[in-house]
Design a protein around this nucleic acid. Structure first.
Length: 560
RNA sequence: GGCCUCGUAGCUCAGGUGGAUAGAGCGGGGGUUUCCUAAACCCUGUCUUGCGGGGGUUCGAAUCCUCCCGGGGCCA
């Protein structure tokens, strides 16, 4: 448990004790101690921590909040809890000022934990899957996929940092209607290349990438497929294209810093009979009905039924998806997190209901819906469509903006806010991207450590507490405090599955550091002890920044 | 028509379990370098009254409930 967490827990316990003691003495009347909050006041002048217990108790104890606060304070044991000063304020807050000395324990903690500082064991024993991107393999990865990639990868890293056993997975929709259309489109291009008649179907793929694939097929196999019967030919063409497309996506994602543990084929679910078996299980549970020649999943209370098997005998995408999720839990995951585009929101409730029908815990599946990315160019929204060919891919993005900036940008936003991505800004003024602000801080930190080494200073030893206590400048204390809070920030971000909190945290850390840098000399400090203390602070801040950037999947450069 | 989501400063956005005077970055204005990287720092919000609007719950609402308006999306 981190120093700060322990400190907070201890103070909370003291307040609970005080409440109970006051009740025992007949000073306060309540059934159970209220679930009070120990919060950090917005106004720094109010102190380090504030407790709202008195206000929560006012009604039940039938006393004014400020009076209750006074009673609590008279019963509060402050010794050995880092409480330096308490006061009743405002409507009945109990404000606490901490003994500044508590911060001297932070740096030894950071420096001894090193790359693990901020990590925890809270997720130990929990197996979690994060499934993200899972783009249709018929096209290229677009900006929405890029956002999902950044979010999913970082969330996986975050959960792993809290001790979870995490797997990253990509679901390949390698069967069904869109694959059929892909095959027809390829066939048409292929025919055209070989001087035959060929027409891309209405809802086929007109993009240049498909034409390119057809050319490489023709280059490799010539007119081989002309003689084949249509079905076999289409299957072969689609198989070739799929392999190529999936390999391309894998490459693009790896260039973006994302590696998957599992690439899962939808087709395999059909071929292994797992889809059929899943339908059987649903039928045995009485969740299936037949109507109009089709097989339906009965909707739960008031929801409408969903088609599982069409009247022509082919299972729907939904049927396969249910089988897929059944398979996930059969693989032993305690929690499954899916990152989907907001356009899939209608699918969430259905999917969870289906899990319930299978006897699985619906809440074990968490779906994070991402709003769309809107591209702006020349002040106008760029319309992207596969047909028009106006298409910015993940690769384009990495090439133009860079992997770090792109990832950082996506991770600055909460998933449920629509992102406007200004291409002109990203291209021409990319130096103004906040990612450089953070990376620059890291480079500056490294610069100092480098110079210290060149001066022959010891950059491995952590100075003893009396020396660390010299860090008394408000800027130094703000940095120490930010370091102390990191473990809780990470735990919170993990619990809420919101990596963007850490982006905010590391920007704040960088800001505090830049300010410190401009006001406090490290290597030219007034005394050797102060220099040693500041050097330890620099090492601690560097470590924390590097750890957070690591979770975000953004590099921490030593020089810029 | 039903459902999801968003609406916070000129712009882009943060703001767990409701808390005391609502923040950041960018942009605008003004400063800082014989010194560890100025990709930085400091000052400035009467830069037209910043939580879309109205009700409600509460000691207390940007946050919870409800209705309305507007952007985006899904389904019918």
């Amino acid at each position: 448990m981190s120093l700060y967490t322990e400190l907070r827990n201890n103070i909370s316990a003291r307040f609970t004790e005080a409440l109970l003691a006051a009740r025992a003495a007949g000073e306060l009347d309540f059934a159970a101690p209220p679930l009070f909050a120990l919060e950090e006041p917005r106004e720094r002048a109010h102190g380090d921590l504030a407790v709202n217990a008195a206000m929560l108790l006012a009604k039940e104890a039938r006393k004014p909040p400020r009076e209750i606060a006074g009673i609590i304070l008279r019963r509060l044991r402050c010794e050995d809890a880092w409480i330096a000063e308490t006061a009743v304020a405002g409507p009945g807050f109990i404000n606490i000022r901490l003994d500044p000395a508590w911060l001297t324990g932070v740096l030894p903690e950071v420096l001894s934990a090193g790359p693990r500082y901020g990590a925890s064991e809270s997720g130990r024993g929990q197996k979690v899957q994060v499934e993200f991107v899972s783009a249709n393999p018929t096209g290229l990865l677009h900006m929405g996929n890029a956002r999902g990639a950044a979010l999913g990868d970082s969330l996986a890293a975050l959960l792993a940092f809290t001790g979870c056993e995490v797997e990253r997975e990509f679901y390949i929709n390698d069967t069904g209607n869109q694959i059929h259309n892909l095959a027809l489109s390829l066939e048409a291009r292929y025919f055209q290349l070989l001087g035959r008649e060929g027409e891309i179907p209405e809802n086929g793929y007109h993009g240049e990438d498909i034409a390119e694939t057809a050319r490489s097929i023709a280059a490799r196999d010539g007119d081989l497929y002309l003689a084949w019967d249509a079905e076999a030919r289409r299957e072969a063409l689609a198989a070739y294209a799929l392999e190529e497309k999936v390999a391309g996506m894998r490459r693009a994602l790896e260039d973006f810093g994302v590696r998957y543990d599992v690439w899962f084929s939808e087709k395999s679910l059909h071929e292994s009979g797992y889809v059929r078996d899943t339908l059987r299980v649903l039928a045995e549970g009485g969740h299936i009905c037949e109507r109009d020649g089709a097989v339906w999943l009965k909707g739960a209370d008031g929801e409408k039924d969903e088609v599982m098997v069409r009247s022509d005998g082919t299972p729907t995408y939904f049927a396969a998806d249910i089988a897929y999720h059944r398979d996930k839990f059969a693989r032993g995951f305690d929690r499954v997190i899916n990152i989907w585009g907001a356009d899939h929101h209608g699918h969430v409730a259905r999917m969870q209901a289906a899990l319930g029908a299978l006897g699985l815990e619906p809440t074990a599946l968490r779906v994070i819906l991402m709003q769309f990315v809107r591209l702006i160019e020349g002040g106008e929204t760029v319309k992207m469509s596969k047909r028009s060919g106006r298409y910015i891919t993940l690769e384009d993005l990495v090439a133009e903006v860079g992997r770090d900036a792109a990832r950082f940008f996506f991770l600055m936003r909460a998933p449920d806010s629509t992102v406007d991505f200004d291409l002109d800004l990203a291209r021409s003024e990319s130096a103004e991207n906040p990612v450089y602000y953070v990376q620059y801080a890291h480079a500056r930190l490294c610069g100092i450590i480098r110079h210290a080494q060149e001066m022959g200073l010891d950059v491995e030893q952590t100075p003893p507490p009396p020396v660390l206590a010299l860090l008394s400048d408000p800027r130094e204390r703000a940095l120490l405090r930010q370091l102390a809070v990191l473990p809780e920030e990470i735990a919170l971000a993990a619990r809420l599955a919101e990596p963007h909190r850490l982006t905010g945290f590391v920007m704040e850390l960088a800001g505090l550091y830049h300010s410190f840098y401009n006001h406090c000399r490290v290597l030219q400090a007034e005394t050797d002890d102060l220099r040693a203390a500041r050097l330890a602070l620099v090492r601690g801040v560097r470590q924390a920044a590097a750890n957070v950037l690591g979770i975000l999947g953004v590099t921490a450069p030593e020089r810029m």
